[in-house]
Computed example of a mutant assay.
Amino acid sequence: MKSAKSQSPAQSADRSAGSFRPDARDETKDRNTTRVSRYSPRKGKTDWAALDALTDEQIEEAVRNDPDAVPLDIDWSDGVVVVPMKKIPISIRIDEDVLDFFKREGDGYQRRMNAVLRSYMNQMTKPKKRA
């Protein structure tokens, strides 16, 4: 009696309706897809020769006339490097409406939740005022 061979996961995946279907490629043909390779990089629209030809005075003048430019005369001598505290990933159960509230405010909701918890912690650890 010959025993039946079990199919390997790879063989059975070929026959299943997995994440890739052979006909799925046809659906992407109409999309605007750009492929970029380090071996054939895309050429940008920057005129590097014209940029290289600018003098320092011309660059400074262009920056002065740019309303979005940051001033070039920032004094960094009093600057302080602030190393952010280490974050520890945890799993926590939060009421759905509380989580929805923070997520509605957009990206950075976890950072905002941390700020609220930090504020509460700071209030609770303050020395109590005597009457």
Rank of each mutant, 00 (worst) to 15 (best):
T46Y: 09
K128D: 14
Q58H: 02
E105D: 12
E105Y: 10
F20A: 04
P41S: 05
R111Y: 01
A53W: 01
R15V: 05
D52Y: 09
A49R: 09
S40E: 10
A13V: 01
R118P: 01
D75Q: 03
K128H: 14
V82L: 08
A50N: 00
L51S: 04
Y109T: 00
A50W: 14
T55S: 12
L72I: 02
R130P: 03
S3M: 06
D107Q: 10
E61G: 10
D52R: 15
P41F: 03
R42M: 14
M1F: 08
A4E: 15
P84F: 05
S119I: 04
K45M: 07
W48S: 01
A4I: 07
R15L: 03
A13D: 02
K129A: 09
R42H: 03
A24V: 07
V83N: 09
K2D: 05
K126M: 08
K2C: 11
I94K: 02
V70A: 14
D26V: 08
A49N: 15
A10D: 00
W48F: 02
Y120W: 15
L54T: 05
A4L: 07
K87M: 07
V36K: 03
A4Y: 14
M1A: 15
S8N: 00
D100I: 12
L72K: 06
A4H: 02
R130E: 15
I74C: 10
N65G: 11
S6Y: 06
K43A: 04
L51K: 04
P67K: 05
T33Y: 06
L99C: 07
D75L: 07
A4T: 11
P71N: 14
V70D: 13
L99N: 05
T33V: 07
P71I: 11
S119F: 07
P9N: 00
V80T: 10
I74V: 15
T55K: 00
Q58N: 04
Y109D: 02
M121V: 07
R118D: 10
E60M: 08
A17Y: 01
E60L: 09
D56A: 12
R118H: 06
S37A: 09
W76D: 14
A4W: 14
V83W: 12
K45A: 13
K29P: 13
P89C: 03
P127L: 08
D52S: 13
D68P: 06
E60V: 12
A17N: 11
V98H: 00
I90G: 06
D23T: 14
S12D: 01
N65R: 10
L54M: 10
R42C: 10
I74M: 09
D68M: 06
R25A: 06
K5F: 01
G44K: 02
E57S: 09
S16H: 00
N114E: 14
K45E: 10
L54H: 12
R42T: 13
E60P: 04
N65D: 11
T55V: 08
